[in-house]
């Protein structure tokens, strides 16, 4: 059987579960709102980075992206849903690839629209403080932001397939992003730069120092995501459903 019908089915499943489009809407709303807030707040900080300030709504907003990825997979681990799914599509690898694609595409599209909107709104608030941002940096920040949100959604999706539980994934990732990464991240050091969220966030900054640049940072996040997805795929393929 082909990939397209399976992908269509997985897309239908995401569309028809109200909480999933809801999570994407929350991603847009939270990111835009927090960016707008940061933009109007001004630039008293000496470490002020106008590009990151404009996109800083992503920090709280990414929780919605993570929830989207986690819930899209965890809906298969309720009361034997996965058995029904795999009875319809016994090629487990193909099924998981379709699921991942059906998460990646809307997450990327909504992520890009969100990044664009958040940037425009925050920039209006920042006014002349943001004059130093070049067009290249704008494009890099917005594009990177969309990709970053997609990668985080997929990272959560992979972990959920490993844990077979959305609650486990969210109770690991949310404290990690809000607390651990924040605390260790400020303590600096090169190891913290390679954490999945910290590495990917470099692309949101106008200026950066350290081992990783914007794209290599995003590549590190992509590696984390790939590892999580491979582990998830292994779990789906090897374990009894």
């Amino acid at each position: 059987m082909g990939f397209t019908p399976v992908l269509h089915s997985e897309w239908l499943k995401i569309r028809t579960l109200r909480s999933l489009p809801g999570a994407l809407l929350a991603l847009f709303a939270a990111t835009t709102a927090f960016s707008a807030l940061a933009g109007s707040d001004g630039s008293s900080d000496p470490d002020f980075d106008p590009l990151f300030t404009a996109l800083s709504g992503v920090l709280p907003g990414q929780i919605a992206a993570i929830s989207f990825g986690a819930m899209a997979v965890s809906s298969e681990y309720h009361g034997g849903a996965l058995r029904l799914t795999l009875a319809a599509v016994p090629q487990r690898g193909r099924w998981f690839a379709a699921k991942v694609t059906a998460i990646a595409v809307p997450a990327l599209l909504v992520g890009l629209v969100t990044a664009c909107t958040a940037y425009v709104v925050a920039r209006a608030g920042l006014g002349s403080a943001a004059n130093g941002i070049t067009t290249g940096e704008e494009v890099r920040g917005v594009l990177g932001c969309g990709i970053y949100l997609m990668l985080m959604a997929l990272f959560a999706a992979g972990l959920t397939a490993v844990f077979r539980s959305g609650v486990a994934t969210l109770s690991l990732l949310i404290p990690f992003i809000l607390v651990v990464s924040f605390v260790i991240g400020d303590a600096a050091g090169t190891v913290a730069d390679f954490l999945p969220d910290k590495a990917g966030q470099i692309v949101l900054h106008q200026t950066y120092d350290g081992t990783l640049g914007p794209w290599s940072g995003l590549a590190v996040t992509a590696l984390w995501t790939t590892a999580a997805l491979l582990a998830g795929a292994w779990s789906v393929r090897r374990r009894d459903a």
Partner: peptide, 22 residues
């Protein structure tokens, strides 16, 4: 196999549609 396999937040028709399409 299991009557609980359909997700509670989906409608019956959407549940069957997703299966049919695959």
């Amino acid at each position: 196999l299991d009557a609980q396999a359909a997700h509670g937040s989906r409608t019956a028709r959407d549940h069957l549609r997703a299966l049919a399409v695959s």
